[in-house]
Design a protein around this nucleic acid. Sequence first.
RNA 1: GGGCGCGUAGCCUAGUCUGGAUAGGGCACCGGGUUCCUAACCCGGCGGUCGAGGGUUCAAAUCCCUCCGCGCCCGCCA
Length: 599
Amino acid sequence: MSLSGSSLPSSSVDPWTPFLEAILDGMVAAGQTCGVAFTREAIVPQLSLDEGVEGEVAFPCHRVAAAAKRSALELATALAAAFPPSPLLRSVSAKGAYVNVRVDPESLTRSTLELVLSRGNRYGHGEPAGPPVAVEHTSANPTGPFHIGRVRNGIIGDTLARVLRASGTPVTTQYYVDDMGRQAAMVTWIWSKPRESWPEPIRKAVEGEEAPEEKPDRHWGRPYPAVSAYLKEHEDAREEVSLLVQQIESGEVPQEHRKLAESILKGMLESLARLKITFDEFVWESELVRDGSVNRVFERLRACPHAIQETNGAWAIDASSYGLPKESTHLVFQRGDGTSLYIARDVAYHLAKFARFARVLDVLGQDHQLHARCLNALLEEIGESRRPEFVIYQDITVPEGGRMSTRGGSAVWLDHLLAEAVDRARAEVLARREDLADSDVDRIAEAVATGAVRYHIVRAAPDKPVVFRWEDALSFEGRSGPFLQYSFARASGVLRKGEALQPPYPFDAARLSHPDEATLIRIISRFPRTVAYAARTGHVHAVAGYAHELADQFNRFYHAVPVLRSTEERSSRIALVAAMRQTLGNALDLLGISPLEAM
RNA sequence: GGGCGCGUAGCCUAGUCUGGAUAGGGCACCGGGUUCCUAACCCGGCGGUCGAGGGUUCAAAUCCCUCCGCGCCCGCCA
């Protein structure tokens, strides 16, 4: 890994900073001796950390050598020889064209453990900085329960918000509730009719499946797929829905409409809450219509040079000069009947966000990518210079091929997945522990199940398509959420039995010299850098990978090195376990996975 | 057809933004480990030259071009 910018983080948040300072000072001094001038700013991005053959920090000399018209091998040797000694660095050597620096392990151990133990649950976090950022994610239409494909948005978005907050950025998360569009209107349309008068296919699709006391999203959303299919075939019904859309948008809103949307949303949010996904704010699309924002957007767009009106009264922007695909240069923003299209409302929504936030982040599925570009085109058209930043993720597909589809019957419901995961987790807990109270079994099973599901989704890079397989999603071993929880529980067990759940943790860095200890400390020391990287790039899956690496090395250490049974190393090792537990706990928090003291 | 994304061992995946020294993990498979702090664990082994081809470079999984495969989008739906 290389560093993100040309400057170093504050030493109050990153244990590596003093060592990197020492390396930079040494490099500059050695450069002067050898007749090559380079600045710290030039060196920083070239340093490669935690890599290399025989050093923790390596500096490849090819570039400077080429600039100085010298041999890279010769220069590496000369630089290493001229490198002034530092108490923080154990050795500096040349190998090939590389200068390899090993930091003093005791100093790094001290620097790391002190920082972790003093910062506690702030370890890994940056210093508060930067302007306020809005993160919009999930924003699923309130038409029925979540399937796992939709939840990927929320898991990525919520993790991104957590990571950004940890990096120091003030974040507000928003769920954009689309209660104005056709989709939501379809739900109201069917429920506004007496059940007896529902078209046959819709009634049939719903009948016999309902459970008493089912969640509101399940209940009220049940007819939606059938309605959607029905409308494709029935022009008259489509017209009824169009009429309803007009009524809703003009404010003659049947009270029922908002209540239905709220009710379904409530059920949806209940499921998300189990995954620890919550929101700071909900922005109801109907409010943007009611407060005139959408109308103001209409006025601004109609006044634009590329605005055109169709013969039936619809308005569009000719966006052919914006580099969009040829087929989507005709951007209709207002229907012939005067109602708004999603893109017009989305412009209004983004203007509202720009008014409050310096940066606007939208988490979007790849199917919305073209829409995102069209949105940018309209923002440009009305003279808005700011742009949202899009975090695009790929779909979750099913093994048979294709996206998860509610209508096609290929959707895997989040609630179903969680129920299955809880069942399996409970069986695992019961197989291992006979001493637990029922309430503890329930609590652990819920944590394991939700941790497994959340980790399974967040571990993949957003731009990687994910094929949903039950056996993978329900895996509790290897690279999984439960493995992280298990490792945390193990560390907790050690501290509990050592009666060391509270600080202070006195330690002697010289006593932590076992190779598995050194490796563990290196990984712990990398956490702040990892969080900063994830926040900067939006690669939140880097945190998932990091947490696994940390837990993995902890287990290796656990097997190789006795803690409570050791004598002169005991307190130092307890301190190391406490630091690892703190770091893993902080990582779990960023991932939205519940830590477990025991399992 | 056009646009966008993806393509790393039998399967899944990190690394690609910012090119650097033997491409990290996990699953599966084979062989070991529990009188000892939780075996949802650990140790060892097997297996990849990074879709194909060209180019740039001292150096390419990483940058550029072409091609192939897969996915998504191309609505007065969202």
